[in-house]
């Protein structure tokens, strides 16, 4: 039936702005302005004691890249591998909860999220202990002659990626579940009715329909993983340092604000470019 939408009542025209303005003002002051400050700071010279002045020192970006370019490459590769691994682990899990769990659906969902309420740092420290050289995991694998970097798990890139995958898993599972759960099982039945074997039905029907969840999940995993440095600190060796480690050190230890700001800005711009390319490629504008 006809359902004319949206009726503009007299006098309500200014209401959305009244509702928006406190929050938007907050985001402008504490999100946009700091970004501008960060950008400005990256182009300043000076030192922490004397203060910094804006000199439009663009050169800092090439200096930053020579010194820390490999950190960027490492951060993005680790985040990429962790995202793929998280997708591989989370998809069957989300699928099982959405289609196979029956009345255990909600309980399973709770079980999936619950581990992540154990503090982020505490569970990363737990991984540190689990993967330790003298731990049972390492010794078991060693006795099985499992190939490992330097015969150990802790302080390797494997451990860092393992930690990144683990820590951001719920950000992958939840959007995947949300989009899978929305699929009407009858469409999949219709596909099998139309001669699609289960694998074809999945490839042609289920997976395409779950794509919004895949896009949202991979973004929500990749972005924090690329910026993280807790996993690299606890689980990696000095050779596994990521951009976050350097930003943290330059800001909080060396107080070299311009180079730290340049690192941060580059990180932001790189992420935003990757995200917008990815969203355009995936054709899903609806992620917010």
């Amino acid at each position: 039936m006809e359902l004319p939408k949206g009726r503009a009542r007299r006098g309500s025209r200014s209401l959305p702005y009244v509702l928006l303005s406190p929050g938007m003002l907050w985001l402008v002051i504490f999100f946009l302005v700091p970004m501008a400050t960060l950008a400005a700071l990256s182009l300043q010279t000076g030192d922490y004691e004397q203060g910094f002045t804006l000199t439009w020192n663009w050169h800092i970006y090439s200096e930053m890249w020579t010194r820390y370019g490999h950190h960027f490459i490492r951060s993005f590769s680790y985040a990429f591998v962790a995202t793929v691994a998280a997708l591989v682990i989370a998809y069957p899990l989300a699928y099982a909860i959405a289609f196979k769990a029956g009345r255990w659906k909600n309980l399973l969902l709770v079980l999936v999220i619950a581990p992540f309420f154990t503090s982020f740092l505490v569970r990363t420290l737990a991984w540190q202990a689990i993967l330790a050289d003298n731990g049972w995991v390492t010794s078991t694998l060693r006795s099985l002659h499992f190939p490992m970097q330097d015969g150990r798990l802790l302080n390797t890139s494997f451990a860092v990626i393992c930690g990144l995958t683990y820590n951001f898993l719920p950000f992958m599972v939840l959007p995947l579940y949300a989009s899978l759960e929305r699929i009407d099982p009858r469409v999949v039945e219709a596909a099998s009715d139309l001669y699609a074997r289960p694998i074809t039905a999945f490839r042609r029907v289920t997976f395409p329909l779950s794509l919004p969840g895949v896009v949202a999940g991979t973004l929500l995993t990749f972005i924090p993983a690329a910026g993280d440095y807790v996993n690299a600190t606890f689980l990696g060796s000095p050779q596994d340092q990521m951009v976050g480690n350097v930003v943290d050190k330059q800001f909080l230890v060396s107080n070299d604000y311009p180079i730290a700001s340049a690192l941060s800005m580059t990180m932001l711009v790189a992420i935003l470019i990757l995200v917008s390319l990815y969203i355009r490629r995936a054709g899903t504008e609806e992620i917010v």
Binding site: L27, P34, L38, V247, A260, S264, M267, I271
Partner: peptide
């Protein structure tokens, strides 16, 4: 803000 890595938001 959701697309901004935490290091960037924290440092800015």
């Amino acid at each position: 803000p959701m697309a901004t890595p935490e290091v960037v938001m924290g440092s800015s």
